[in-house]
């Protein structure tokens, strides 16, 4: 459903990403991992239509994207900046639904349902600044869910919460997105997370970022924070991705490839 063709972007003379090619199938969870400064965020912002890439194309369902595409939602790392402090959690979640042409009642019902899915039904009337970081990021996730996008982009979504909350949110994301059959592109610098969450892990090189590895993750589902992470396949794949991220030559033997 999503296809990147030779996607490139330069800021002045700085080349952030260079001819990125990627195909994502409907319902797939693809994690993009790379060293810091590999142009991960530039890639995501190009897909979201927030910046106009200087080269190449973004195709959604075969059509080139111009501006911000319909049916797309983004969850940013910085929930405190991305949620609106003058609105309650419910109003924050309901806001994008204005684009769906729903009346107030149906917007609120949909927002409430999404908050229930992330376990925040009781906090609907709270303001973001009255919530913990983990709760705020749940609200961001609920906002994306309520919008029911076909493609969900997540930019380091769990990078600003503590380790335990991070695991909870990883599982929450996997659960609700499987339920909705959403396609997810998740950007992270965390090798562990990319293997745990993804159906596929795409590794970007240092800037200018380009695809240096595209590994299928074949781990039994549903994933479990303890059991999945102790599987041999998980450990081997994590090592393989880690090598690629550090720019070392791939070590193909141990990895189960399709």
């Amino acid at each position: 459903m999503l296809e990147l063709v030779d996607l490139s972007h330069t800021y002045g003379s700085y080349r952030a990403i260079d001819r990125v090619n990627l195909k994502v199938a409907q319902g797939e969870v693809v994690c993009i991992v790379g060293p810091s400064g590999c142009g991960k965020s530039t890639l995501l912002r190009s897909i979201a239509g927030l910046i106009k890439p200087t080269g190449g194309n973004v195709l959604l369902d075969g059509r080139p994207v111009d501006g911000s595409p319909e049916n797309l939602a983004v969850v940013f790392q910085d929930y405190s900046r991305s949620l609106y402090p003058w609105m309650s959690a419910l109003a924050n979640v309901g806001l994008p639904l204005r684009r769906r042409g729903l009346d107030k009642k149906r917007r609120e019902a949909a927002a409430m349902a999404a908050l229930e899915q992330v376990g925040l039904a009781g906090a609907a009337a709270k303001f973001p600044w009255e919530m913990s970081g983990g709760m705020q990021q749940r609200v961001s996730i609920a906002r994306a869910l309520a919008y029911q996008p076909k493609l969900l982009l997540m930019d380091e979504p769990f990078g600003s919460v503590d380790a335990q909350t991070r695991e909870e949110l990883e599982d929450l994301t996997l659960r609700v997105c499987a339920h909705h059959g959403m396609t997810i592109l998740l950007i992270t610098h965390d090798v562990d997370e990319s293997v745990y969450v993804g159906d596929r892990v795409v590794v970007l090189s240092k800037a200018p970022g380009t695809v240096v590895g595209d590994l299928p993750v074949q781990l039994p589902g549903p994933r479990d924070q303890i059991h999945t992470r102790e599987l041999d396949a998980f450990v081997r794949l994590r090592a393989e991705v880690g090598r690629l991220v550090r720019g070392m030559t791939p070590h193909r033997n141990g990895v189960e490839t399709r």
Partner: peptide, 29 residues
């Protein structure tokens, strides 16, 4: 106004007018 606050709404497909009315005005209030 935080640029990310505006980008968030833009990423949901809102146009510049909506961003001004729903983010810039309440944020600057």
């Amino acid at each position: 106004i935080d640029p990310l606050a505006k980008e968030t709404l833009r990423s949901f497909g809102f146009g510049p007018g909506s961003v001004a009315y729903r983010v810039v005005l309440p944020g600057a209030a």
